[in-house]
């Protein structure tokens, strides 16, 4: 089962993007499921989602280490057993930490007969509010950009060229390795490319082997 995280701060357009991505992937014949942060924002299939308890709670700071990891991994295991989706789109809260979600997703392997793969972690950055985001929630936005495989500069149809350039520059400074692409979740621009990435590309698993090595060094083997 492939898990695809679509991150971004509140107002970044991620809910619209998630629904369009799900729609496009379903048209391509994929069996889909979604785990969302706030069902209230989603007007499609909300009752279905609610009735199956498929929400993720807000995942904060280090809390992914204990309680939430269990809830999230349980949710994925239930999804697998009930629907056997090929791809699960996860729309985390803007305060979630992508590596924490990756790790928690992999925990679900112990609860269901499956192997988790990760699609590239996608972070949407709202170009129309880039100045506000940098002033108001810089650290949270930086965390999500730093951990992304692909950053989509969103709302390119309404943002000024200067704001788009500023957003791209910010992304490059924080995460030079991230691929940068453009999206307008409202018009649908960039949605097909996001779907291609989710279908075809893989993001590394949370690396317990690296963690093990670090700890070995710390304890001198």
């Amino acid at each position: 089962m492939k898990v695809s995280q679509i991150a971004g701060f509140l107002g970044s357009g991620k809910t619209t993007a998630v629904m369009k991505i799900v729609d496009e992937l379903m048209k391509r014949g994929r069996r889909m499921a979604i785990v969302v942060n706030d069902v209230g924002e989603i007007n499609v299939d909300a009752k279905f989602i609610e009735s199956h308890g498929l929400k993720a709670k807000e995942i904060a700071g280090g809390c992914i280490c204990c309680q939430i990891a269990g809830t999230f991994s349980e949710t994925l295991a239930k999804l697998h057993d009930a629907y056997d989706p090929e791809i699960v789109i996860v729309e985390p809260s803007g305060v979630a930490i992508p590596w924490g979600l990756k790790r928690a997703a992999e925990y679900s392997e112990a609860k269901a007969d499956m192997v988790i793969e990760h699609a590239p972690v996608i972070t949407l950055v709202d170009a129309t509010r880039i100045d506000l985001l940098v002033k108001a929630v810089k650290r949270l936005v930086e965390t999500q950009i730093r951990e992304a495989d692909v950053c989509f500069v969103n709302k390119v149809d309404t943002a000024s060229a200067a704001d788009i350039a500023k957003t791209e520059q910010l992304i490059k400074e924080i995460n030079p390795k991230a691929e940068i692409s453009h999206m307008s979740s409202e018009s649908g621009h960039g949605i097909k490319y996001a779907c291609d990435l989710i279908e075809k590309k893989i993001s590394p698993r949370y690396d317990e082997a690296v963690e093990e090595e670090l700890l070995k060094k710390q304890y001198k083997g």
């Binding site: 807000e58 904060a60 809260s93």
Partner: peptide, 16 residues
């Protein structure tokens, strides 16, 4: 407060 208001909203409102 973050549990009651939602952390994202609260963080943004701390500024705005």
């Amino acid at each position: 407060l973050s549990q009651s208001a939602g952390a994202e909203r609260m963080f943004m409102d701390m500024f705005t």
